[in-house]
Design a binder for these strands. Sequence first.
RNA 1: GGAGGAGUAGCGAAGUGGCUAAACGCAGCGGACUGUAAAUCCGCCCCAUUAUUGGUUCGGUGGUUCGAAUCCACUCUCCUCCA
Length: 307
Amino acid sequence: MKKILIVAGPTAVGKTAFGIQLAQRFNGEIISGDSMQVYREVAIATAKPTVSEQNQAVHHLIDTQSIYDEFSVKEFVEQADQKITEITARGKLPIIVGGTGFYLNTLIHNFKLGAEKDEHYQKIEAEYQNLLEEKGEDYLWQLLFKQDAVAANKIPKENHRRLIRALTVIKSTGHLFSKQQEELPVKYDAYIVGLNTERELLYQRINQRVDQMMSDGLLEEANLIYSHQDKIYQAKQAIGYKEFFPYFEHQITEQEAVDLLKQSSRRYAKRQLTYFRNKLPVNWIDSVKKDTRYYHVFKEINNWLTK
RNA sequence: GGAGGAGUAGCGAAGUGGCUAAACGCAGCGGACUGUAAAUCCGCCCCAUUAUUGGUUCGGUGGUUCGAAUCCACUCUCCUCCA
């Protein structure tokens, strides 16, 4: 099984710098494990590694898409798998650095994702969307319950997106959504380093980074997304754009939008932490207050590499 | 000195006799997640405890009442206006 090193952690803890450090130390190349750094037209809100940072270690899966492209886990896993193969063949260590827990999880566990999202799929999805509007969430949930009680019991009826996805998968593949979720053996020998620090410190860093983004010209970038939003699918969901939409529409002040952005970022950090804590076997270290554990991890990685 | 107004959980803010440990928002915390995941959704949030239940609350004190954040008296603090 191929070895991959993973660096996970909430936004703004310092994953980029730490990843570079690891790459230099363990002869590695970095693969971005991030759902938003793939878009080449933007860089500020997504906190993409700077040119000089990218020069300090080889980076992959950055700038591979246009903001007008659709992108999802599927593309990520395909691309990452290929990069891992290439890097390993070169005799180097693949290091996945990123905050998108779902992507990392899917990569190492090789989740089955269901049928192709072709026209047929889109049609089914649209049908359920209409059903939801006509008959409401109760109806949709009952529908799922009749088809796949296990799945229905795991999805609250308020969670429309997941409800529709489950129903669509069942109809397009012919098998149960819950069946698709069977555990599979892991695909990689992964050592996962989790970066974290005291909550208060983390929030401080988040707030500071947002201010930095503002002086780097975030408004302009957000405006680009705002003015083309009809043609943009996933990229406009990034934190740092939608918070400014009401500002562009004169609903709120710039300061209010900035506060909103900080709020979204803090909440996001918490969601990330929850995901990593409960879904992945993470070796946690404090990346800000570097204690003994911080240095101990390098030794652990060495042991894991020679195993 | 005179006339009004306000004091509610960390903050903001509802609530004018029982259905109120007290709506709602913010802040804080926890959780779910198998093709939008920086998305989507849920829970906790006075104190103690397990789902339970118990205890102490609505500036303070004392009353009225079967029952008060809600009514009365006194009192403290703050705000506005007039002197």
